[in-house]
């Protein structure tokens, strides 16, 4: 190691890009916020719009806690810039269901005890909502693989699988 040069750490400051108004369509509502391009969709939701149901578990696309739906498709909101999502249809956990009217997956997660600490849960549910729409996860083996983009450190996978399969099977019927 001693023969290796020290890497450069400090960098010269650059001019800061100005903030600009940005309108995002979230859960069916237009929301306008003032952000610079460096604001990720995840931070826009959590820090600018107080939609904290979407979680930050790694901020690098390595855990799935930040999963939201864009035009019905699941993505990692931490790896997308808010400016890249203008005019798209964004759905977060807050738009999946409410305490009064839970989505069948939300109810199934409660019934099957498909979470413990709850931190990965909104991402798991958004991911499973998209899975149902994709129509590809029909068997347990398929669902295991297609839900592997959402880490759960509490290890609730057995129960998450049961919850998702209940809704998958209900959809088949």
């Amino acid at each position: 190691m001693s023969q290796l040069a020290q890497p450069t750490l400090g960098r010269a400051p650059v001019a800061l890009a100005p903030t600009q108004p940005l309108t995002l369509r979230i859960n069916g509502e237009n929301r306008t916020l003032n952000v610079a391009p460096w604001t990720t969709l995840l931070d826009a939701l959590r820090e600018y719009l107080d939609l904290t149901g979407t979680k930050k578990g790694c901020d690098h696309g390595q855990c799935g806690a930040c999963t939201v739906l864009v035009n019905g498709k699941r993505i990692n909101s931490c790896l997308s810039l808010a400016v890249m999502q203008e005019s798209e249809d964004i759905t977060t956990i807050e738009g999946i269901g409410t305490a009064e009217e839970l989505h069948p997956l939300q109810q199934a997660f409660i019934d099957h005890d498909a979470f413990q600490c709850g931190y990965c849960t909104p991402g798991q549910i958004c991911s499973a909502v998209a899975l149902l729409k994709e129509g590809r996860g029909k068997t347990e083996a398929e669902v295991r693989d297609l839900m592997s983009g959402n880490l759960c450190r509490c290890g609730a996978y057995t129960n998450i699988l049961s919850a998702v399969m209940e809704v998958v099977n209900a959809q088949k019927a």
Binding site: T92, L102, I110, D111, D113, F115
Partner: peptide, 14 residues
Amino acid sequence: SRVDGTAKVTGAAK
């Protein structure tokens, strides 16, 4: 079932 289940599945748990 967990009494905090609804808060966790709706993202309301802070």
